[in-house]
Structure formats: structure tokens, C-alpha cells
Amino acid sequence: MDKGQTGAIDKRQARAAFSRAASHYDEVAELQREIGRRMLQRLTYIRHQPQVVLDVGAGTGEATLALKKHYKKARTIALDFAMPMLHQVRKRGGWLRRPVCICGDAEQLPLADQSVDMIFSNAVLQWCNDLQGTFSEFLRVLRPNGMLLFSTFGPDTLQELRKSWSHVDGHSHVSPFPDMHDVGDAMVRAGLEEPVVDVDRMRLDYDDVSSLMRDLKTLGAHNVTRNRPRGLTGKGRLRAMYEAYESFRMDGRLPASYEVVYGHAWAPQQRQIDGVTAIPVDQIGIGRWGQG
């Protein structure tokens, strides 16, 4: 997604939203916690022993500490672009389990080339304007044979909210989400190897639309697109959106659908650095799964 296209994320506003949300984020992050748990379960089936683990978009650090527990010998780093989120990570970790915390953007990681063995990123990529560029940045900091495991949201996410707003005006009210196939293509173009992408469907139910809107705001996940309407939303337009959303009510509840895209890939053993193919000495003659 090009940064200049309509609907692109306003990163300054997104950072401000998550900064405000940090102290109450865990109260409503039920979906994000469940996705994180499912990602962590996948690690039990992947043979990899990293020395340095980077949690990109760590939020309040629940997954960071789980990674620290799972990879006891690894150095675990929590990275988030909202400093107040990292304050929550440090509170959660306490003195004994406190991970390294770095404030930075996933699209411009403040880390050296080939400095981490694993990147874990839960529900972050949808806040990045350049998907392929972000994957390239991930590849830059991954060591040869390093692993990337991530989740993001697909285009069917919050479809009820998007359709309800479409009855009211032509503005962007819901963040854009990449298609699963676009995610896979972006990984390949970035140079990641053996990419695997799959989709899961999840749903949260609400008594009313205002509860959904309140949760999104508490999460910091409300509308921060560049094409968002400026100023306050009028009561009439908001009421019209609420009425349109009522057409989705099932069994007395209003659904909020989420299309969860999971993916993982590997950094190649060999890569081009300034036009020269570089091969780590310890990998000469060695395949990913053993002796070559």
C-alpha cells in the first residue's frame, strides 16, 4: 500500500491513539490476546532456537513475557511506537522479568542489520502503510535462517461497521486491511523464503454499536486514516450508522467480524549485500534442517 493513497494510516495520529489507550488497553484486548495465544501455540510446532527475539508492536507486553518464558535462553526485546505502551510492558515484567524495551516504528526498525533471530508481531501490520517495505525491514534485521511469525487483519474485518458507515457518507471510517494474497505476495517480493499464510475467522458480539465503538477507542484502534472525516461526527450521521448496523443483529446481539491473517516465513541463508552474495561461515554446507 502506497503511503500517499487514500485511506493510508496517519501514523502520527495512530501513535497518539495508542499512547492514550495504553493504561486501559488490557481491559478490552480480548481478541488481541486470543490471537497472540494462537500464535504462541504455533511456536510449539516450529523448530527454532533463537538467541534474540524481537516482539514488534509489543503493546502492553503480554506476548513479550510469554516469548521470554518460551525461549528462556534468548534475549527478548519489546518494540512499540507508543512509549506509554512500553511503560506498561515494564510494569508487567517487574524487576526480574523486565525485557529490553525500544520505542520505534515497524516500518523503520532502530536495529542493526542481521541482529535478531526471530520476529514476532501480533496485529501490527495493518498500521503500516508500506507492507512490502515493512517485510523488507523485517528481513534486514533478521539473521540468516531467522524466522518471522505475524498476524494482521484482512479486508473482511469490521465489515459490518464499514458497510453501515457506507450508508451515511463516502468518508473512510474503518482502517484499510490487506488481502491475504497481497500479504503473501509482499513477503515474496521482499525476499522472505518459504512464506505461509492462512486465515481464521473470529467474531465478537455486542449489545449495541456504542459498546463496539467504545472498545475500539479504548484499544486505540479507532479511525486514523488520512481520509477520515475531520471534526466531530454529527448526531444525525451517527444515528444513521447505528440504524444501518441494526440490520446485522442476530439472536439479539450485534456482530463485529474479524478476518485474522497469520503468516510466517524465513530469512534466506544467502542474501545480496551491496551486490555481493553473503553466506554466513557457520552455514556453509549446512541446510536449514541439518547437514546439507
Rank of each mutant, 00 (worst) to 15 (best):
T64R: 01
Q51V: 13
G59Y: 00
K72S: 14
L149I: 15
T157H: 05
L125I: 10
S136W: 11
L131P: 02
R92V: 07
M39C: 14
L65Q: 03
T76I: 08
V28Q: 12
D55R: 00
P155I: 11
R75S: 13
V124C: 10
V53H: 00
L43V: 07
V116A: 01
D130F: 04
R37T: 11
T64P: 02
T60I: 06
S151A: 15
W127T: 01
H87C: 08
A29I: 03
T152W: 01
R37G: 09
A74R: 13
G133E: 09
R42V: 12
P84T: 04
F150K: 05
R33S: 07
V141A: 00
W127Q: 02
Q132S: 07
R92Q: 11
R97H: 12
D26R: 07
L65R: 03
G104C: 08
R162S: 12
R42Y: 11
P110M: 08
F138C: 11
G133D: 06
D105R: 08
I102P: 00
R90W: 09
T60M: 06
L86N: 00
I46Q: 10
F153M: 10
T157D: 05
V56F: 01
R75I: 13
V53I: 04
V100G: 02
A63P: 09
R143Y: 10
V28T: 13
T134R: 09
L158K: 06
E107Q: 15
R143S: 12
T134E: 05
W95D: 13
P50G: 09
A74H: 12
R143D: 09
S121P: 05
M147D: 07
A29D: 06
C103R: 11
F81Q: 11
Y71P: 07
R98K: 15
W127C: 04
G146Q: 01
A106T: 06
R140T: 06
I77M: 03
G61F: 01
Q108M: 07
I119R: 00
R33T: 08
F150C: 13
D113Q: 11
V89D: 01
D26I: 05
L67E: 02
L158H: 09
D130E: 14
D105Y: 10
T60H: 02
G133T: 08
L79I: 05
F135R: 06
N122Q: 11
S136K: 15
T76A: 03
D156C: 10
Q159F: 12
G154L: 05
A78C: 01
